[in-house]
Amino acid sequence: MTTGEPEPDKACRKCGITKPASDFYMHQGRRHPRCKACLSEYYRDRYKQANGKDKVFEQSLKRLYGITLGDYNRMAAEQGNLCALCGDAPDTERRMHVDHDHATGKIRALLCHHCNLLLGNAKDSPHRLRQAIAYLELHHPAYTLAAGLAERLQPQEGQ
């Protein structure tokens, strides 16, 4: 209300309890007919009836990659529910990522979160990944120790 007066209490259409106006969301310029608690319960029930995460996930799979949840589950089973890149099981309860070629949209495999980020941050560039490997080998203690040992074992000029 614009008059500065407090809004009157309101009865919820669902539970019938009269509550302060602040217990109701604003909807199209008015207070919603259901209180926040009843509305929350309604959405929670609707989510469960729609098979919740699976339904939302399948909608995303169809929109982004043109596959169904069944297709995704078959891919995961074919991979033994392991990441196609590192071969490990995902370290969280989250689903694996659908890896795809960004230029063509062609689906490659399912990857764990870390491997998906690795390829994404490398911009799917084999050259960049080879450079990263060389960099890691150059600065890895085992490799630097081996390189130093090999250097000391090589005969010096003039000996």
Rank of each mutant, 00 (worst) to 15 (best):
I17A: 14
I17R: 13
I17V: 15
T18D: 10
K19E: 05
A21G: 05
S22H: 14
S22Y: 14
S22I: 11
S22D: 14
D23N: 11
D23S: 12
D23C: 12
D23H: 15
D23R: 15
F24I: 02
F24K: 02
Y25D: 12
Y25W: 00
M26T: 13
M26I: 05
M26E: 12
M26A: 04
Q28D: 10
Q28F: 09
Q28W: 08
Q28A: 12
G29P: 07
R30K: 15
R31T: 04
R31M: 01
R31H: 10
H32S: 10
H32T: 01
H32P: 01
R34M: 07
C35N: 06
K36N: 08
L39D: 13
L39A: 11
S40T: 15
Y43K: 15
Y43E: 12
R44H: 12
R44W: 09
D45R: 15
D45G: 12
D45I: 08
R46Y: 10
Y47M: 04
Y47R: 10
K48I: 12
K48T: 11
Q49K: 15
Q49M: 09
G52A: 00
D54W: 06
D54E: 12
V56I: 01
E58V: 05
E58N: 05
Q59V: 00
S60A: 12
S60F: 07
L61I: 03
L61C: 03
K62R: 15
K62A: 11
R63Q: 10
L64E: 15
Y65F: 12
G66N: 02
G66K: 00
T68S: 14
T68F: 00
T68R: 05
L69S: 04
G70L: 06
Y72I: 06
Y72A: 00
Y72Q: 11
N73M: 04
N73Y: 02
R74E: 14
A76I: 01
A76D: 07
A77C: 01
E78N: 11
E78T: 07
Q79P: 14
G80V: 07
C83S: 06
C83A: 00
A84D: 03
C86W: 04
G87Y: 11
A89H: 13
P90H: 09
T92G: 10
R95W: 08
M96H: 07
M96G: 10
H97S: 10
H97C: 11
H97P: 03
V98S: 02
V98A: 01
H100M: 03
D101Y: 04
D101M: 01
H102D: 03
A103P: 01
T104F: 05
G105W: 02
A109E: 14
A109G: 11
A109K: 02
L110Q: 00
L110G: 04
L111N: 11
L111C: 08
H113P: 05
H113Q: 13
H114W: 00
H114I: 05
C115A: 04
C115G: 03
N116Y: 05
N116W: 06
N116P: 08
L117Q: 07
L117H: 06
L117A: 06
N121I: 02
A122S: 13
A122I: 02
K123H: 14
K123I: 08
D124R: 00
S125L: 02
S125V: 07
S125I: 03
P126H: 10
R128V: 13
L129R: 03
R130G: 03
R130C: 06
Q131M: 11
A132S: 13
I133Q: 11
